[in-house]
Write a protein that binds this DNA or RNA. Structure first.
Lengths: 239, 239
DNA sequence: GTAATAGTGTCTTTGAGACAGTATCTT
DNA sequence: AAGATACTGTCTCAAAGACACTATTAC
């Protein structure tokens, strides 16, 4: 290892050509019965004026990993920290960015509409787009593909976990979770199955409060602090 | 988009500091009742002499993505193309490589021992290490963590797919698949459950041949050409 | 024949799907 | 009381777990 000292003294990273590295996030939320993605209008070239994912370059001074980069960019746009953030994967190649060989680390996030709505309304270059309307937008680079990757991951994971809770406010009812799950999957699910899983997951506790969202008051629940997401060994909608 | 032309003429990637980008692979195989990982002795600094994952820098002339980089490096070491290769994720940060802020795209691969054994024997700086013996090796960077990520992904995926077939030769018996699965999971599984899945997957066809691996001859199977891996909606060993 | 591995039959168990039934709230 | 939503009970169904059983080969 002492050989390293010598080597590192002579090492100059800038001598080696290296790909352009960016970090982009697919941030989902639920609003008005629709699954929405946050898009940002590109203010500078390349592809100025097109819509794309929130993201950008790594700040090597500040960021201690690409998760930090993703969080920093998302917080700039939404004003809050997403309650779920996981790595989706990378896309790379010589042709996807006109500036040259590039690599993007894509992240995938969920947020409650209620939590960020006040802030996002003030940002004119960011917009929540329902997934069904994505076709109306000219998307930059391969961001359309990345969004499709994220969508399929979101739907897959919804089948074997209660991921949709991360798109709900801190306190919520069974009915809200069912609605969120159905919007994400695009089809109705059995309430009974959902509640069975809800109990079995051990992820939640009652607040004691109840909410009058419908005719009868519904109990309110919250995530137990510090409890990890539970993965089920069977899928919902397994046919 | 015409604004891009001007912009790109003036664009010089080397003006921006960028992280060190590498691609590393965790290549698994099965040998003598053990799950093994391919390790390579580092021939040059940093961390010369330590053992690490096969990998290296992207060749921006040749590689059309990090998958190509991973394949190129694996083929150099093993002489063959792995039958399974998927992206594991990235690790990044300022402290993991002494040369500075770095990012590694990690890939995860499976190969049949029989297919690469002749070649690997001739390469003195590469070695198959049974996972139980990883503790005996001083591993470079955070390669130990990456191997653990790969191991848990491999085991997880083995629970809801027949991934272990990719660690078998082109023709194999039910018994070999069961053995492979049990080695990977580290515990016995029900042969009946495995065969039920095997049939249901639609991934395989009989060769017509049979092999005398044990007392009674066993039928030989192969993967149907062009058929994708089947994902089950329930896990094996769900307790 | 025996021993050993290959392969099948079938009962149990688990958890999702379906849906009827009861409870509680607003009007 | 009526109507709506919240919640429960319970039957069916699909696939895994368990394990006994039969089949084929080597010796």
């Amino acid at each position: 290892m002492t050989a390293d000292v010598d080597y590192l003294n002579r090492y100059d990273a800038s001598r080696f050509p290296s790909p352009l590295v960016t970090v982009d996030s697919v941030l989902f939320t639920l609003h008005q019965q629709s699954l929405c993605v946050l898009l940002v209008e590109r203010a500078a070239p390349p592809q100025q004026g097109l819509w794309g994912l929130p993201g950008g370059f790594i700040d090597m001074q500040q960021d201690d990993g690409t998760r930090a980069t993703a969080l920093r960019k998302l917080t700039e746009k939404t004003g809050i920290v997403p309650s779920w953030l996981e790595e989706l994967g990378t896309v790379s190649g010589p042709g996807r960015d006109p500036r040259g060989w590039s690599l993007t680390v894509a992240w995938f996030a969920l947020i409650a509409w209620e939590d960020c709505e006040p802030h996002i309304a003030t940002v004119s270059d960011a917009r929540w787009v329902p997934v069904e309307q994505l076709g109306d937008y000219a998307l930059a680079f391969d961001h359309g593909d990345i969004i499709q990757m994220a969508l399929s991951r979101l739907r897959q994971k919804t089948m074997y976990s209660l991921l949709p809770v991360y798109a709900l406010p801190a306190c919520f009812t069974h009915g809200q979770l069912q609605e969120a799950t159905e919007i994400i999957l695009g089809q109705p699910i059995q309430r009974k199955s959902l509640i069975r899983r809800f109990e079995a997951s051990g992820m939640f506790e009652e607040t004691g409060e109840s909410a009058a969202t419908g005719a009868r008051k519904a109990r309110l629940w919250r995530r137990k602090p510090g409890v990890d997401i539970h993965l089920f060994s069977r899928n919902l909608l397994a046919d």
